[in-house]
């Protein structure tokens, strides 16, 4: 098991390096010279050249990226061009907001989709089942930012219950978490329903019933545990993507998360900040996926046996 984890961590390194290269390279391709925007209007060519060196932007792309990577490997993510502050501290500042939104939304998604998906599977072909299918179809087809706008209209403009934007506290979290959670619930309900349906006709559930296990326990204990692997998989990738992929929702609710920070950095040609953010995001996503893979082992002994090999 430990060997498996170590191997996975080592495999992450080339992926992370390639991600930084791709982002750095793309940012470099972007038209416009960052330095000429940063420099004062009356700067002499020498001054511009000095600035360029100061920001590590002299030399060819390979040289520049090499320098960036070298520093990154030493734990230095560089300084943001625009905010003039270390990338890592800017990132850390936004991190709590992102984590809060990600976990709150996944909680909303779980609370909606697990009961709904299980009920849909146990009442296959009933109205409840149909309801869950329609609901999850709507939720995966609806642009989340649009749902966010509708919620703002209803709950902040019309009823004035929740603020329409900002990230100052719990009150501000509810609407974005609901929006993002609803978006995620669609997929999660679908996968819960279908994996429960796969399990529900298995012989071992009949064995459990024949032992005298109550129906509630048969479903929650015996069936759910077996249906859990696909559910955890989707849960993991959903959570991982919520760390940086909720850009549109962060924009709608003016929520100061990493996603919005990254888009801002990209739009400002802030190479170090953009690359740093995406690097950190990729790291978080990969860590989440690793945690998911480890969780498999605890859910299913057969997976655990495979890992130890």
């Amino acid at each position: 098991m430990t060997r498996y984890i170590v191997r996975r961590l080592l495999l992450m390194i080339p992926v992370l390096i390639c991600v930084t290269f791709v982002v750095y390279f793309l940012m470099d391709l972007a038209p416009g010279d960052v330095i000429s925007q940063l420099a004062p209007a009356d700067a002499t060519p020498q001054q511009i050249e000095m600035l360029r060196e100061e920001y590590g932007l002299n030399g060819t792309i390979i040289e520049r990226y090499g320098r960036y990577l070298w520093r990154l490997l030493h734990g230095d993510m560089g300084t943001s061009f625009f905010l003039k502050r270390p990338v890592f501290s800017v990132f850390l500042e936004r991190l709590p907001n992102t984590l809060m939104l990600a976990f709150a939304s996944i909680l909303v998604a779980i609370l909606i989709s697990l009961p709904l998906g299980i009920a849909a599977a146990t009442h296959h072909r009933s109205w409840l089942d149909g309801f869950s299918v329609v609901l999850s179809m709507l939720s995966v087809s609806m642009p989340a930012f649009w749902l966010g706008l509708l919620l703002i209209f209803i709950f902040s403009l019309h009823w004035k219950i929740f603020p329409s934007g900002g990230s100052e506290g719990l009150k501000y979290l509810i609407l974005p978490a609901l929006t993002l959670g609803t978006e995620q619930a669609g997929n999660l309900t679908r996968i819960t329903r279908s994996s429960m349906l796969d399990v529900i006709h298995q012989d071992y559930l009949r064995t459990a019933r024949a032992k005298g296990v109550s129906e509630k326990k048969v479903i929650r204990h015996h069936a759910l545990r077996n249906a859990l692997i696909p559910i955890i998989t989707v849960l993991g990738s959903t959570l991982g993507n919520a760390f940086g992929g909720a850009v549109a929702i962060e924009t709608v609710f003016a929520w100061n998360g990493i996603g919005r920070l990254t888009v801002m950095a990209i739009n400002n040609r802030d190479m170090t900040l953009a690359t740093g953010c995406i690097f950190m995001f990729t790291l978080m996503l990969n860590m989440t996926l690793l945690v998911v893979d480890i969780a498999y082992a605890y859910v299913d002994p057969r997976v655990k046996a495979r890992y130890s090999k």
């Binding site: 991600v19 793309l26 990209i266 996503l285």
Partner: peptide, 24 residues
């Protein structure tokens, strides 16, 4: 597969933003 992994490591929307800012 590794190549695919790199691309899926970045959320599609951020990747989209980066590509658009690079190519206009």
């Amino acid at each position: 597969l590794r190549f695919c992994e790199i691309f899926t490591g970045i959320p599609s929307i951020l990747m989209g933003v980066a590509l658009i800012s690079a190519f206009g």
